[in-house]
């Protein structure tokens, strides 16, 4: 991270907000359907590298902030396209954020709820100003302004940025000792546009002869029935770390059913090679792969490589022992 060359390589995705911002910028605004892949190979966000460093809450923060940005952008586009005073149902779409099981949902929810209750006062000045304006606008909310501010998600978004940025780790207890709780109406934390759910609920699905049947059954009761109820509301499905065979099978089923009408985002997925047929056309929107290079006959690993994809091309950056910062080595 100390060698990162921001002017060449873009925003450093070392905080959930920075990652969400950088990745959101790699989506084209007209991409409203189809499957996109985010491939962020940082150990705390990447279950493919093992569970030792992986932080499910941090990964959920990135996903949450990213889909929030995309949904907001879509909403802004739709509002621009329509009369701003008449917000159509299509201008208030929502996202479904999927994780593996209910235990993961519960641990993420616990941290998010805790954060919602304990805002800190060490926000940046800009965030303070934004929040002051938001509070003023909310306190002025009445019938005349209802049309303009009919959805407080915008303000919830700013607050969730502040919350995420203010926490150095996502541990459930991280805010206990150091952070001073701020009195705040927790109802202003808007989660209405992001629904966190699990693929399989409480079901434990292992590989075996009845795997497919179990996957379909669990998917039906946890995701498909919900999407059926909300089909006019939800336009984005994001799944964090589908890495096991049952999860990939579930994703393939969802892609088959919804990819033509919804935007599906897979964050750090792992598929067998060759890719499953349903995912052949999935596009890698953003990829960051850090490596250390060493000669075959040496243990010395002073050369750092980052393979990065932000738009169409893949770039390779290098920083050896003599370089202070990464320089661009090649474009593929």
């Amino acid at each position: 991270e100390t060698s990162w060359n921001q002017s060449l390589m873009g925003n450093i995705p070392t905080t959930p907000m920075a990652a969400a911002q950088e990745i959101a910028d790699c989506f084209f605004t007209h991409e409203n359907a189809g499957v996109s892949i985010i491939d962020l190979q940082l150990p705390s966000l990447d279950l493919r590298q093992g569970a030792r460093w992986y932080d499910a809450v941090l990964a959920a923060d990135v996903a949450h902030l990213l889909v929030e940005r995309l949904v907001q952008r879509q909403r802004d586009n739709n509002v621009d396209a329509n009369d701003t005073n008449k917000q159509t149902p299509s201008s208030s779409k929502k996202a479904l954020l999927l994780v593996r099981d209910e235990a993961t949902v519960r641990s993420i929810e616990r941290v998010w709820e805790k954060r919602a209750l304990s805002f800190t006062e060490d926000d940046t000045e800009e965030e303070e100003n934004d929040e002051e304006e938001d509070e003023q606008e909310m306190s002025n909310n009445n019938e005349e302004t209802t049309v303009l501010y009919d959805d407080f998600a915008d303000f919830g978004f700013l607050e969730s940025i502040a919350a995420v940025e203010s926490l150095s780790t996502s541990s459930p207890n991280a805010s206990d000792s150091q952070q001073k709780p701020r009195k705040r109406n927790t109802e202003t934390i808007d989660r209405r546009r992001i629904q966190l759910q699990s693929l399989f609920g409480e079901a434990i699905i292992s590989e075996g002869a009845d795997m497919e049947q179990k996957v379909i059954r669990a998917l039906q009761s946890n995701v498909v029935s919900y999407l059926k109820e909300q089909q006019d509301e939800i336009d984005t499905i994001a799944m964090i770390a589908p890495v096991t065979r049952p999860e990939v099978m579930a994703i393939c089923a969802l892609v088959q059913k919804y990819a033509k009408t919804m935007r599906i985002i897979l964050i750090n997925p792992h598929f067998a090679k060759p890719r499953p047929m349903e995912l052949q056309h999935a596009k890698t929107v953003y990829s960051l792969r850090p490596f250390l290079v060493r000669a075959k006959d040496s243990r010395k690993t002073l050369t750092k490589i980052v393979v990065l994809k932000r738009k169409q091309e893949w770039e390779v950056f290098i920083s050896d022992s003599a370089s202070e910062q990464f320089e661009r080595l090649a474009v593929n």
């Binding site: 491939d39 890698t284 490596f291 290079v293 393979v307 893949w314 050896d320 003599a322 090649a330 593929n332």
Partner: peptide
Amino acid sequence: DGPSMEWVAACAQQYLQQKNAES
């Protein structure tokens, strides 16, 4: 998906050799 590790390694090797030659 993406460049092969062999290609990345070859780029790095070329770069490091060039750097060594310069120094």
